[in-house]
Write a protein that binds this DNA or RNA. Structure first.
Lengths: 194, 194
DNA sequence: CTCTAAACGGACGATATCGTCCGATTCATT
DNA sequence: AATGAATCGGACGATATCGTCCGTTTAGAG
């Protein structure tokens, strides 16, 4: 029996909740496995880690690229929520930038980003999320330029690259965290208009 | 017939020149192939690109890890020559740092560094080269601190990470070069003592 | 509770990569 | 030019991974 969705389109059925859960677990397990064993980690490993069969992996993601693209999309969408939160409660653009980048660093184990060695986003949705994120960053930079706290020549690509790079899964441990913080602070200090 | 080497040790024979050439070509081809297809690129591909047989690859590097470690060692040694050159003819420590990092970025296609996704150096020689490089960087930072041009809290790991990260094989093209330059200049600007 | 479409999972044949082994080749020496 | 040790290269058996296929299980509508 047909089920009418909110947007007025018609579907055979609502998505099964266990299927949704499996997709979530799959995504989480895939990111962890890739960080642990590299991009070429066997699908079987991902499946086992997620507690599903390989069949389920291939049903949801016909191709490895499809899976990777989905992980990238999720990562962009996560960063989107972070930049929104950081922008909301920050007195200056530089503070917002600091909050955003710090949050992203904290999320690094949950994300797969292009600079991690992951592929550039291909799918439409992944690209859309990336564009949206870039728009937000641009707004932040414009605000900083208006305030006079960020040099005008700074571009979106700079921040995007820095964020993606700082968020590399990298070595764990407190040393790295300190390096990360110092690098970020130094960069932010250099951002000021001379 | 024995051949007496310059250091006074005795060897059966001088190394064959074609073997030396093959090792060089192998290293170059391996770096290029890895940047193109990832760390898991088949040995056969590397061999073909280098114009040798797989047998030659395995004879020189019994293990994939052994090959990767060799590439890492070569990269560190290249950076070593760069930092020496940059240190020699630079009026200030910051200028030397700029020269060094700029050179490293220019060499990115010829290097395989840990942050590229490559493994941390394991072999004795690779580690030694890395330590030597760190010593040089420390000297540079000390000089900067003495001059008053670099904050004292900056550490070797910061510069090492920045260099290795900027030198990622990344996207080609002028846009990236500009991003790279701006990031570096912004960081260097932030380095100044406040 | 019944029923059905959707989802599951893992065995399996096809394919790709590994790393060894050895006959052929080539360089350095005399 | 002759010699022989070092080097070469790629065929080959072993192993690992891929991606499909289908019998079984399960969520959810009625």
């Amino acid at each position: 029996m047909d089920v009418v969705s909110g947007e007025g389109t018609t579907r055979r059925r609502a998505p099964r909740t266990d299927a949704v859960q499996n997709r979530e677990r799959l995504a989480r397990a895939a990111v962890a496995a890739i960080h642990r064993e590299g991009l070429a980690v066997p699908m079987a490993t991902i499946a086992k880690d997620a507690g599903v069969g390989v069949g389920t992996v291939y049903r949801n993601h016909p191709t490895r690229d499809d899976l990777l693209d989905d992980l990238t999309r999720r990562s962009f969408e996560l960063m989107l929520t972070r930049i929104e939160a950081a922008t909301d409660d920050a007195p200056t653009a530089v503070d917002a930038l600091r909050g955003f980048l710090t949050a992203v660093v904290g999320d690094r184990d949950a994300m797969l980003l292009p600079s991690t060695g992951g592929p550039a986003p291909r799918g439409r949705e992944a690209r859309a999320a990336q564009r949206e994120l870039h728009t937000r960053i641009r707004a932040l930079l414009d605000r900083g330029a208006a305030e006079g706290s960020i040099r005008r020549e700074v571009e979106v690509a700079d921040v995007a690259w820095l964020g993606a790079t700082l968020a590399q899964p990298g070595r764990p441990g407190p040393t790295w965290d300190r390096v990360c913080r110092r690098l970020l602070e130094t960069y932010l200090a250099g951002l000021a208009t001379p």
